[in-house]
Design a protein around this nucleic acid. Structure first.
Lengths: 257, 257
DNA sequence: CCTTGACCTTGACCCAGCGTCAACCCTCGA
DNA sequence: TCGAGGGTTGACGCTGGGTCAAGGTCAAGG
């Protein structure tokens, strides 16, 4: 006859766990000896091992209790489900591995590879680091909301970089970060931005509007507010651009009159 | 500016979780508006997403807090460890899949394949089902204690089955299960067992002793006690065998005088 | 016979990571 | 002005046990 600690050590669990299983009704309470100690037979070891196999596989103890009482058919069905869950958990862990790997690897905080390469491209083009950080954070938001459209968004952005004057504008943005509201140089910047918009041909403009249609308005608003928060002159600049016939920032639109 | 529920929905977490992260110091408490509501900027969304990436990967929140404050080097080291853990968890789940599959599949409660095929062999040889169940439970105990030696144990057992008189003895064991202590037929059984032991050549005997040396004495004792509990005449039989010069059951030993 | 140390008993509190009330205040549109 | 639907803090609940606490018991040795 076994004491509780012997039983526990045979099955590789703690004494506390055995008592816990008694309390939960997973393991029947054995006879007590004259002094109240629990006394186990070897069959209890087998029962305990079964419990551990199920519990180790992540089955909640309440479910283990049901399964031990279940018939062979129900048991097999349940095992099939447990197996399905285990496979799912394996796949989840695999994707978590990718996500933290990207998180560790510089920019790739939460970004898919195409976004990382876009940021790399900005860097190659000599865009200042502070601007790139802002872009990165914005893309993290977009990736969180619209992962399935990231590729299309990025493609459209990379296309815009082919115009050297767009790249120039980006570069100028850095000094703008430190300007105070009301800075007179903003007028020139607004002119520049608007003149760039005007060079877009009507069909390209239609495509651009089309592309961004899938970005939900609240995401656009969030990105705009991010711009406003981080750049002191943002509000001024948006007002000046609006005077020239365009509204918004993340998604610029011609004002119809 | 975002309210807490907006922030939460952008990052794909619950409001309760956001407050929890504030309470744990993972996310800095933002300014409150005039009515005491928390007001967030877009950077908080980015922070929150980072937290989720780490937490989803199974990093405890206390550790997440450290990592957010850590330098780039420490961070990369930590990520390498997290990745290691994820790989380990994947492997664990793979082995749990195998274990529950065996559990669902008839005998293979917690048994490695070699044990299952040994039990199949017993069945082929016409050994009664009640005896096989006893064997199965015994092997579950052995597998739990000495998984690395299972193959050797089973090999030795399969070898013994080649002697037809051993098989005969096994078959006779079934009726013995229902005998009452003191049954006179036990004498003949004891003779049989001892005569079988005597047919073993000295070198085979040495090999047999050698084989079982790796089974720890407490495991042998447990298996013996299992026999004693399940078979009423077990103690009688062991006494009779002992009279004839051998002690024990699971591991029979010649008594030296 | 007594002590000592190892083991047994029950009961109760503690942890993560939030979910889920409760009880109250604030905001906004009709 | 009212009611719905936000927000606030605080407290308890869940799992699967770990970890005391405050005793009773056992076997061995002096």
């Amino acid at each position: 006859m076994l004491t509780i600690s012997q039983l526990a050590s045979y099955a590789g669990v703690t004494v506390r766990a055995v008592r816990h299983y008694h309390a939960k009704g997973l393991l029947v309470e054995p006879e007590r000896d004259h002094s109240g100690y629990r006394r186990y037979d070897a069959a209890a070891v087998v029962d305990l091992i079964k419990i551990r196999i199920l519990a180790d596989a992540g089955v909640p103890l309440s479910r283990v209790k049901e399964l031990l009482a279940a018939g062979d058919d129900d048991f097999k069905k349940a095992v099939a489900e447990i197996d399905k869950r285990l496979r799912l958990e394996i796949r989840e862990r695999q994707s978590h591995r990718e996500r933290i790997a990207r998180l560790a690897h510089g920019d790739g905080l939460a970004l898919p590879p195409e976004a990382v390469s876009y940021l790399e491209r900005l860097r190659e083009l000599g865009i200042p680091e502070r601007i790139i950080e802002g872009e990165r954070d914005a893309w993290i938001l977009v990736a969180a909301q619209q992962p399935q459209s990231m590729e299309a968004f990025i493609r459209s952005k990379v296309g815009q970089l082919e115009d050297p004057s767009v790249v120039e504008t980006y570069k100028q943005m850095e000094e703008l970060l430190d300007w105070e509201p009301g800075d007179p140089r903003l007028e020139a910047i607004a002119d520049r931005i608007v003149s760039q918009l005007e060079t877009i041909s009507p069909e390209d403009w239609a495509a651009y509007v089309e592309d961004d249609t899938s970005m939900p308005p609240e995401l656009v608003a969030l990105l705009d507010s991010m711009f406003v928060e981080q750049v002191p002159v943002a509000r001024d600049l948006m007002r000046l651009v609006e005077k020239r016939g365009y509204t918004g920032w993340t998604k610029l639109e011609r004002i119809e009159k």
